[in-house]
């Protein structure tokens, strides 16, 4: 085998990993898919059943009596926390990118950017530690009660302020975790915009901010969309930080933005020990189904982002 073929083979192994992951998860989760049917996605009831009773046969699968798996609350928690994060991260990310690319002298740019973008390097579990030990006491005792008092009239901002564990806390911490991706991508795109665009706008009498707002930012819209979708994908799959600050709600939907939630990724970690108690294995297979759903969602999200960014990549590859 020549060298070219060998590298092609090894590269195919890399490409095949994703296919293998999806296939194995699907095969393993298949009995759960058969047993849970569609109400897996539409109902709020994760119940292992009676652990002390003899297993029974339902729809061709051996399960515990009264076992029922519905993960609507996980889907809601995952999507809502991601929504909060992305709604906050896009304006903050673009704003910071503008500051880094346009307001800073080029000498400082690289190092100041690095400082902010290192937010993405901090491990998830360290965010969890910070959130658990410092942010939650602050939010739960001070900010959330204050918000209920002053902004309680806005839908979902009123009601019980909770203990600090919950949807908004997750959203805020997730924002910090995904914002560097948006900032870095938009900043790179702004810096690499052709100088002629800038010169043209200035020649027409635009101020620097007008140049930015009306000429440069529309030019990076596509990159921003791609980066935002990638950031969405990261927020959907964040595990450890969310596990430590979400409150790990079970079987109920959040009723305001302070409510405890649970996400698919964090639920997989928090439930494995109890799922292993199920002698029929249906609980573990249902967790695999959760992983499969999460995997398919993230593949879809990342696939879309990559297709959108492909155009930009081609441009840059040609420039190099």
């Amino acid at each position: 085998m020549n060298f070219r073929r060998l590298t092609a083979l090894l590269a195919s192994i890399l490409g095949g990993i994703l296919v293998v992951i999806v296939t194995f998860l699907a095969v393993y989760a298949w009995p759960a898919v058969r047993f849970n049917r569609l109400h897996f996605l539409t109902q709020n009831n994760w119940n292992l059943g009676n652990l002390y009773a003899d297993p029974i046969m339902v729809r061709g699968q051996q399960v515990l009596p009264a076992a029922h798996y519905g993960i609507l609350f996980l889907i809601a928690g995952t999507l809502l926390s991601t929504l909060v994060a992305i709604v906050l991260a896009v304006p903050i990310g673009v704003g910071a990118a503008v500051f880094l690319a346009e307001a800073l002298p080029p000498v400082m740019r690289a190092w100041v950017s690095l400082f902010v973008e290192l937010l993405a390097a901090i491990p998830s579990v360290v965010y969890g530690l910070w959130g658990y030990a410092v942010v939650i006491p602050f939010l739960g005792h001070h900010l959330f009660p204050w918000m209920v008092e002053h902004f309680g009239f806005i839908p979902f901002f009123g009601g019980h302020a909770g203990s600090g564990y919950g949807l908004l806390t997750c959203g805020l911490v997730l924002t910090l975790m995904i914002v560097p991706l948006i900032t870095a991508t938009v900043r790179d795109a702004l810096v690499t915009q052709p100088a002629a665009l800038r010169e043209g706008a200035v020649a027409l009498g635009a101020s620097r901010f007008e140049t930015l707002w009306s000429v440069l930012l529309p030019g990076v819209r596509r990159v921003l969309t791609g980066a935002s979708i990638l950031a969405t994908g990261r927020a959907l799959g964040e595990t450890m930080a969310v596990l430590m600050i979400s409150g790990n709600a079970l079987n109920y939907l959040p009723n305001n933005i302070y409510s405890p939630i649970s996400t698919m990724a964090s639920f997989i970690v928090s439930q494995l020990d109890s799922a292993l108690e199920d002698p029929t294995g249906m609980a573990v297979r249902s967790l695999a189904e959760v992983a499969l759903v999460l995997c398919l969602i993230s593949i879809a999200v990342n696939g879309i982002a990559r297709v959108l960014l492909l155009y930009q990549d081609r441009q840059l590859t040609r420039a190099v």
């Binding site: 992951i21 194995f24 799959g237 997989i268």
Partner: peptide
């Protein structure tokens, strides 16, 4: 494309895959 999408697959999914297999 597959490598880029694999970057976005949550690490817990990869962990669970390794657990199962």
């Amino acid at each position: 494309f597959l490598a880029d999408v694999l970057v976005g697959v949550p690490s817990i999914v990869i962990g669970y895959f390794c657990y199962v297999t």
